[in-house]
Design a protein around this nucleic acid. Sequence first.
DNA 1: GCATTATAACTAATGACATTAGTTTTGGCA
DNA 2: TGCCAAAACTAATGTCATTAGTTATAATGC
Lengths: 192, 192
Amino acid sequence: MAKMGLDRHTLLVAAAEIADESGLDSLTLAALAQKLKVRSPSLYNHVNGLPDLRAALTVHCIRLLVETTRDAVIGKTGDDAILSLCGAYLRFARSRPGLYEAFYKVNTQRHEELESAKQELLNLFLRIMEPYGLGETETLHAIRGLRSLLHGFASLEQHGGFQMDLKVDESVEYVLRAFLEGLHTSKKPIHK
Amino acid sequence: MAKMGLDRHTLLVAAAEIADESGLDSLTLAALAQKLKVRSPSLYNHVNGLPDLRAALTVHCIRLLVETTRDAVIGKTGDDAILSLCGAYLRFARSRPGLYEAFYKVNTQRHEELESAKQELLNLFLRIMEPYGLGETETLHAIRGLRSLLHGFASLEQHGGFQMDLKVDESVEYVLRAFLEGLHTSKKPIHK
DNA sequence: GCATTATAACTAATGACATTAGTTTTGGCA
DNA sequence: TGCCAAAACTAATGTCATTAGTTATAATGC
């Protein structure tokens, strides 16, 4: 019974690997234990059960996503920045499908870490929308639109929603350009 | 041991109720059996295990969604039709959250029913995009955009993604108007 | 260096599931 | 009325998560 020197972070990384390989639903404590060559009850020394592990994955995902997208917008502004951010977002979702699943399957219970990670992501979007000079409310609407668009594309793509023989990236670019065009054109309040 | 007179459709409806009440993950054969006052192995007379039940729910969901949205666009064209369709879509997702979950958690295995239900939904979008006079490719891009937007909003809303004190419906309307505006404005191919 | 102690591993056990095999009942039809 | 297929059942297996209680080990204090 050698001590394996596991810690929370090691578990997290291994868990993310399992999720990426076989989907978040396949992430069981049994599978994780097997991967780490340990009996499943041992995991409880580092993690508070499966829900806790999944919540930790959510935070982990958001942090990586912030890192990735923040990196993608360095030295860019306006439409360029947005297109770059969106590209990075979607590549992230594709390369880490299981981790990305954890992103939106957020547990209702909110804790400190999760909130601050989400806030960071929002801040990134806020800064990137600044140059558009939309008002506060409209900026928030626009950000929700971007997030929804990105999540929609990512989620549908992940679940095999785009079967048509047509590149998803081209759809994304087309749609983003139309949306941004629309933002530029109608900088006025919504008309009744 | 009285015969309960269960059939596949009864199971489906009861299953959808459970999913709507407690989430798709809570839909277990055990729970369904209890709801129907039957032992869980009995369910296998009508359904081929949990995966089959979930697949059936997916088809059920898409059919209801087609019905609902088709109804919403009767007598409307252009932006009006789209706004109405989108409103109906999102109301559907809100009112049947568990069923809607089944929509996008599509099993990779495709069968006849599922494909034809999906095709019907696509056809509805195709017809509604006709008056925009975009080319074939661009119409498909635009439809993907609409679907992604709708799914993104629905999914994020369902998972508590919009916490800001700002009506989701207003965001949807704002974003849709911008997107449609953009479609109208840039009817030309994407420029490099 | 040695004893103590907290920790990280373990084994054993329970209870919820899904699923399969094999059994009984029953409703409809010849 | 008797037969049969369908629809219910019981029993059993295997996979999980989780808890309780045990043992080994590493780090700490002396």
